[in-house]
Simulated scan of single mutants.
Amino acid sequence: MTHLLLLHGAIGAQDQLEPLAQALSDDFLLDRLNFAGHGGQPMTGPFAIDIFAEQVMRYLDNQQIDRVDIFGYSMGGYVALYLAKMYPHRVRRIFTLGTKFEWTPDIAARETKMLNPEIIAEKIPVFAAALEKRHAPNDWKQVLSKTADMMMGLGRANPLVLDDFSGIDLPVLLGLGDSDTMVTRAETEAVLNRLPNARLTVLPQTPHPIEKADVRLLQSEILSFFK
């Protein structure tokens, strides 16, 4: 069996991908990790795509994995494609789901408004409690703050511009939920049109949060692509 690395999204953790991991456990050697500062991992500095990519590289080296297939949800998909740009010899194939590619100062400012911990604690206390549990012993509010800083950095200087995708020639499947209100089809297709060896799959009745995705449908898409 081949290795399949599952990468979680921003303000998330590997536990969110556990239902998917269980569904795929008979078909792959599954690898998972929590990015620094997420899921209780130590806060080692700022959040940034290149820092998370280097963390993945250390994981692959420590596990003696020469090349790996990657399923990346949201930010995890962005990290996967950044790895393919920087270390193409270490990545075999990539499946992204709900990955946002278009970042400008205005877009970053809009997205960070949804990361206000005071508003979340007041308006969505159940979500605040889930974040607190997910990232303990780290302060979940600090996780949100560092994520907001990362997003603003993406808005100022996107580490993956459209021309970069033209140089990523490994097989890529771009997944998008038809009900995703964070990621547009236009920005996804703009990346699709630059990637030399890619296709798009649109998942029906699928919003952005990974918890709301149909695990069986996603399992089928993953098996079809990687197998």
Rank of each mutant, 00 (worst) to 15 (best):
50 D>K: 14
167 G>C: 07
33 L>V: 09
141 K>Y: 02
203 L>W: 15
20 L>K: 00
102 E>W: 08
125 P>D: 03
197 N>M: 06
173 L>G: 04
141 K>P: 00
58 R>E: 14
214 D>I: 03
54 E>Q: 13
122 E>Q: 12
18 E>K: 13
223 L>E: 04
75 M>V: 04
120 I>L: 11
226 F>C: 11
117 P>G: 04
93 R>T: 07
115 L>G: 02
173 L>P: 01
152 M>Q: 05
56 V>T: 11
180 D>C: 09
62 N>F: 12
164 D>S: 11
50 D>N: 12
211 E>G: 13
212 K>P: 01
167 G>T: 12
108 A>T: 05
21 A>F: 00
108 A>K: 00
227 K>F: 08
191 V>F: 00
116 N>K: 02
226 F>T: 01
59 Y>E: 12
89 H>S: 12
85 K>F: 02
34 N>K: 00
23 A>K: 07
217 L>M: 13
19 P>V: 08
118 E>N: 14
9 G>W: 06
106 D>S: 11
121 A>H: 08
122 E>M: 12
148 A>S: 15
83 L>T: 06
175 G>T: 12
11 I>T: 15
59 Y>R: 15
36 A>F: 10
136 A>F: 08
211 E>N: 11
176 L>W: 02
216 R>P: 00
191 V>R: 03
150 M>T: 02
149 D>A: 14
179 S>W: 10
148 A>C: 05
82 Y>V: 01
30 L>G: 04
21 A>T: 02
13 A>Q: 11
92 R>P: 00
25 S>L: 06
57 M>I: 15
146 K>V: 06
187 E>C: 00
71 F>N: 09
93 R>Y: 03
39 G>T: 01
153 G>P: 06
190 A>Y: 08
120 I>H: 05
214 D>R: 01
72 G>V: 08
64 Q>S: 08
95 F>N: 00
168 I>W: 13
149 D>H: 00
160 L>W: 11
125 P>T: 07
99 T>F: 11
34 N>A: 03
192 L>K: 09
212 K>V: 05
60 L>Q: 08
2 T>C: 06
